[in-house]
Write a protein that binds this DNA or RNA. Structure first.
Lengths: 231, 231
DNA sequence: TGTATTTTTCTTGTCGACAAGAAAAATTCT
DNA sequence: AGAATTTTTCTTGTCGACAAGAAAAATACA
């Protein structure tokens, strides 16, 4: 029996496969911001024609993960460090809103999902696996947003969490991937207030958690600015 | 010299043309929610191959304007009347946030753009042109969001305004397209507080304006519910 | 006559090929 | 040799064709 890498795949599954894989590679910074994306190279790699590759790229472009210059190259989107504050503004507000709505509208099964991701997150921290930690952190908050049952907020929040994955990756890389226990406890606290349906507390915790992270990341970038000046 | 409808078009422009046109037809309810979308028919209509048509469709699907069943038909997205409240929640919050940010961060040239759309809006109301009024209303608020200079909020708000175009279309259709002067004055008030950089007032006006509209639309749908029961 | 099964038709997903535009390389001219 | 121009190469955008899957139609069967 043949055991090739991708001998046959179902009709219509190719696009999703390419999309998912490229997305993860971008968000884990395996593909650096600014890296060129070559259609034929991808077609080679995935053993399929350019058509499904292109479709996946159009989707990624729609989410702002890649940028395409007409008739010219397409590349992984850069991180807009100059306007990080707009990112942080949106992030904090969405942390608040989604945690608040989750406290209001969650159902029992939502809590189960949230707790599962929480455990995965805790495990990743324990194992000092930065990539897994960052990814499950996003999944954890995304699950909270889903429990709030507002698809408009969920989709924006998910987009922000995606962008956050790249930024957090940079952040932890600069600390040699030392992962703190602190956020595990904060997440637990967040679950508790959601389960208790304490809306105001959820809002407060959501805000504090968000501002916590924002402050940390900002500290990193101001530090880097100073280093740049010293050089 | 030949004067055909679409004899030649620039390379790369086809996708945008199809995308823009389909988008407008969907948002103006010229294509009813649930209508089937046929690729070959569109290819015929625009005198191009299915490839660029498909790309436009992928983009529209990414924005939730159409839905595609794998290996089966693709159709214009339905309006989710059962969960309208999630739409209204997001809309009110984004009205507040974008108006507030515009008061903070707008530049002189932003005000000029906003005023231009305001005048177009007023003209459409005067002419009792419902479609133009609805479209320029969205453009007006979108311009305010742009003045706030937060692309994350802008993009969510734009999506909400799009969905709002379809809902407003239904709303005004049910009133035989009688357009009120009221919102013209409210828009003027909104411009004034933004120009004055009065952040708190902007927040308040944004919220009032949004809740105004939401209440009106909700009245329509509760009225319809009652009618349904009476039948 | 109503239901199950096969056949046909139709739509979508994928492919390989070609053309257009841009970048890179080679050539010409000063 | 250095700059401008032409040629080549490379990547993307578009096309027509084919294959796979699903719906519709036609047929067989109870």
């Amino acid at each position: 029996m043949d055991d090739n890498a991708v001998p046959e795949r179902k009709r219509g599954s190719g696009v999703k496969m390419v999309y998912d894989l490229l997305r993860d590679e971008i968000l884990d910074l395996k593909l650096a911001p600014g890296s060129p994306i070559d259609e034929v190279q991808l077609a080679d790699r995935f053993k399929m024609s350019r058509t499904p590759i292109r479709e996946a790229l159009v989707r990624l472009a729609g989410e702002g993960l890649i940028e395409t210059l007409p008739n010219r190259s397409t590349m992984v989107s850069n991180i807009d460090f100059l306007n990080l504050h707009t990112f942080f503004d949106a992030l904090v507000l969405m942390y608040r809103v989604t945690t608040r709505l989750a406290a209001q509208y969650h159902r029992p099964e939502d809590l189960a999902t949230i707790r599962t991701y929480h455990e995965e997150y805790a495990a990743a921290v324990k194992a000092q696996d930065a990539l897994a930690m960052i990814a499950t952190n996003a999944a954890f908050h995304s699950a909270i947003a889903d429990a709030g049952r507002n698809p408009y907020f969920s989709s924006l929040f998910r987009r922000l969490l995606d962008e956050g994955r790249r930024i957090l990756r940079l952040y932890y890389q600069s600390y040699e991937d030392q992962l703190p226990q602190r956020f595990v406890d904060e997440h637990q606290e967040m679950i508790d207030v959601i389960a208790a349906r304490d809306v105001e507390a959820a809002d407060r915790i959501g805000r504090e958690h968000a501002e916590q992270i924002v402050a940390q990341v900002q500290r990193l970038f101001t530090r880097n600015e100073r280093l740049d000046i010293q050089l």
